[in-house]
């Protein structure tokens, strides 16, 4: 399949090889620098290289809470698994069945959860900026697992990891992000991340699903998919976010597939070995033809899911490392009488 096994220099089994992030939390890709991103990816490569049943203890004694205000299967399971593989205890806070849905405010929830002293909080919320708000009220490190239409940083990181696994590099690649840009946090995080890593990014979307100001983020904008696919190395498809749409932003799924659904025919306009990615869950026959989605030579979709666990291990470890370093510093400061 040509998946190049990593040349990672990082030792997955060494907890001291953890990456330090510039911030206490991981709320978005915007604002991260290239060295941080590169070392985080390298660390994730080392976790991806581990044997499937390998159990680490880097996060032993730490508690990770996942709290998802929006439904999710893969992201939540992926974080859960990543935390357990690192030796952490995981509590999946049920939202749908709890008092949280019954009108308790996000801040009340944060204060309540904070009293249980979690070390890391993984949150997904339907409102942009919700994870930033949460981070102001808790002692834990917060990972944004998706906030409204804003960012989904671990998704972008896993996408980058997936590309590196397959191709070995990102710099200079022509990457097309296609579909519902307006409602997509994955698109925003990926534009930030792939820009940091030196890719040439274009977005392909109908006028009703992309804000024209998107070009301010340094991307080229195409409304014609066939034109936009020329010379592309990677086609990233986005899910039509029907739950985040208001009314009809496209005439019909049939028309969407006709103009923006990826078929083998349209893919032939891209570079010969062009690869396909999709953050899932896929709408087969809307964003992509079913047959193409299952083509293991061209589709990286299952690798993306696999890499999700490795990147989240690296992110959890990095935040835990930061917490412990801060605590160490705090207690040292206390011992020395510095407040």
């Amino acid at each position: 399949m040509g998946v190049s096994k990593s040349k990672s220099k990082s030792d997955a089994t060494d907890p001291m090889a953890a990456i330090a992030l510039p911030n206490r939390h991981l709320l978005g890709i915007e604002g991260l620098d290239r060295p941080t991103v590169t070392s985080l990816l390298e660390r994730a490569h080392s976790f991806a290289d581990l044997a499937p049943r390998e159990q680490l203890t880097h996060l032993k004694g730490l508690t990770v809470f996942t709290i998802f205000f929006e439904n999710s299967t893969r992201t939540r399971v992926s974080f859960d698994l990543a935390a357990r593989k690192m030796g952490a205890s995981v509590v999946n806070v049920p939202v749908a069945t709890s008092s949280i849905k019954k009108g308790e405010s996000l801040i009340d929830t944060a204060v309540t959860l904070n009293a249980m002293h979690p070390d890391i909080l993984v949150m997904r919320h339907q409102n942009s900026g919700a994870s930033l708000l949460l981070s102001k009220y808790v002692n834990a490190a917060v990972i944004n697992a998706g906030d409204g239409r804003h960012e989904h940083p671990t998704q972008a990181l896993l996408d980058a990891l997936t590309i590196e696994r397959r191709l070995g590099y990102i710099e200079g690649l022509n990457i097309a992000i296609c579909g519902d840009i307006a409602n997509s946090r994955v698109a925003r995080s990926n534009i930030h991340l792939l820009s940091i890593l030196g890719a040439n990014i274009r977005v392909i979307s109908p006028t009703t699903l992309v804000p024209k100001q998107i070009t301010e983020m340094g991307v080229d904008l195409y409304h014609d998919m066939e034109e936009g696919l020329h010379g592309v190395d990677i086609v990233m498809l986005l899910r039509l976010q029907q739950e985040r749409m208001q009314g009809a932003e496209t005439p019909s799924q049939r028309e969407y597939f006709h103009r923006y659904g990826l078929t083998r025919e349209k893919l032939s306009l891209a570079n010969p070995e062009a690869l396909i990615m999709h953050p899932g869950p896929m709408n087969r026959g809307v964003e992509i033809s079913s047959e193409l989605a299952d083509d293991v030579e061209r589709s990286l979709i299952t690798t993306q899911v696999e890499m999700g666990v490795a990147i989240r291990m690296a992110c959890l470890e990095a935040l835990a490392f930061g917490l412990i370093n801060r605590e160490g510093k705090d207690s040292k400061d206390k011992a020395q009488g510095i407040s």
Binding site: S128, R149, H150, R188, I214, E216, M217
Partner: peptide, 19 residues
């Protein structure tokens, strides 16, 4: 303006807020 959260422009696009 239905569902709008802030002025529509570059910043609403970056912040992912409905314009």
């Amino acid at each position: 303006a239905a569902g709008g959260e802030m002025h529509e422009g570059e910043h609403s696009m970056r912040l992912g807020l409905k314009g």
